[in-house]
Simulated assay, not measured.
Amino acid sequence: MKKLLFIAAFAIFGLGTANAQGFSAGVNVGLPIGDASNVSSFAFGVDVNYMFNADEDFTYGLASGLQFYSGKNGGPSQDFIPLALAGRYKLSDTFALGADVGYGIATNGGFYYRPMLVYNLSEKFDLNASYSAVSGSGSTLANVGVGLMYDF
């Protein structure tokens, strides 16, 4: 696990080109839905992205973080680390559509996906609404949430 975290950190922080947009980090909270609502009351986590400009309206890069699902009725909590490719398409000066697609590292890891709508609050802050899920081993750990990102 430590090796995977090191590789993820290296991949995110070690990238750099002359066309780089930059690094962003933030927090999120959500309500578990589907299979996750049977075992969890709420979800929360941290997000990190390193994005590059493809053109004026499209950015791409890497996304990772840590997502926690609280245990319900004294049950154990669950968590996963997403390692994903990310893309964002600017619809206007204030809105963008995005998606993260990759692998969720967990005890029963699987396919990770996170479509989102992003609202640009300011030059440095973005608010997002998203559906985040890891599907694998016959179940899906998912939530609908909101997040706040800071662009460095």
Results as ranks from 00 to 15, higher is better:
Y131T: 02
A133Y: 08
K124E: 06
F42G: 04
M51A: 05
G136N: 05
L66S: 13
D35V: 01
Y112R: 09
P32T: 04
V144D: 09
L127H: 15
S70N: 14
P76S: 06
R114K: 13
A20D: 12
P82R: 11
A20G: 05
T140A: 12
F23N: 03
A63W: 02
V39A: 13
N120L: 00
F125E: 05
S64I: 01
F152K: 10
N120Q: 05
S139N: 11
M149I: 00
N73D: 13
N128C: 06
V27A: 12
T94H: 12
I7D: 10
G110H: 08
Y113F: 14
G136L: 02
G147T: 02
G145Q: 14
A84H: 10
Y113G: 06
F44R: 15
S92Y: 04
A25K: 01
A133D: 10
F111A: 04
G14Q: 12
S137N: 11
F23V: 00
G147P: 08
S70H: 15
S77M: 05
L127R: 11
A43V: 01
V48Y: 12
A43I: 01
N49H: 12
T17M: 05
R114A: 04
A63C: 14
Y113K: 08
F6N: 09
A36D: 10
L66G: 08
G75L: 02
S132M: 07
F13Y: 15
G138S: 05
G110W: 04
V118W: 01
L148Q: 08
V46G: 13
D57A: 15
N28H: 14
L15N: 09
A86C: 11
G61S: 11
D55P: 02
Q78I: 01
A142D: 08
F23M: 04
Y69R: 15
D79W: 15
A63K: 15
L15H: 11
V27R: 10
F44S: 02
F10P: 07
G138E: 05
Q21C: 03
F125L: 06
F6Y: 13
G30Y: 01
A142H: 11
G138Q: 09
V27G: 11
N19W: 09
D79Q: 11
D100Q: 14
A25Q: 06
F10W: 08
G147L: 04
N38Y: 15
D93Y: 10
A9L: 15
E56Q: 12
A9M: 09
K124N: 12
A18I: 00
Y112A: 13
E56V: 01
F44K: 10
I105M: 07
L121V: 00
A11E: 05
L5W: 13
L127G: 03
L117S: 06
A18E: 14
G74M: 03
L83Y: 07
V101T: 02
G34M: 04
F152R: 13
V146T: 15
G87F: 03
V118D: 09
A36V: 04
A63S: 12
I7E: 09
Y69A: 07
G45S: 10
Q67S: 07
V27C: 06
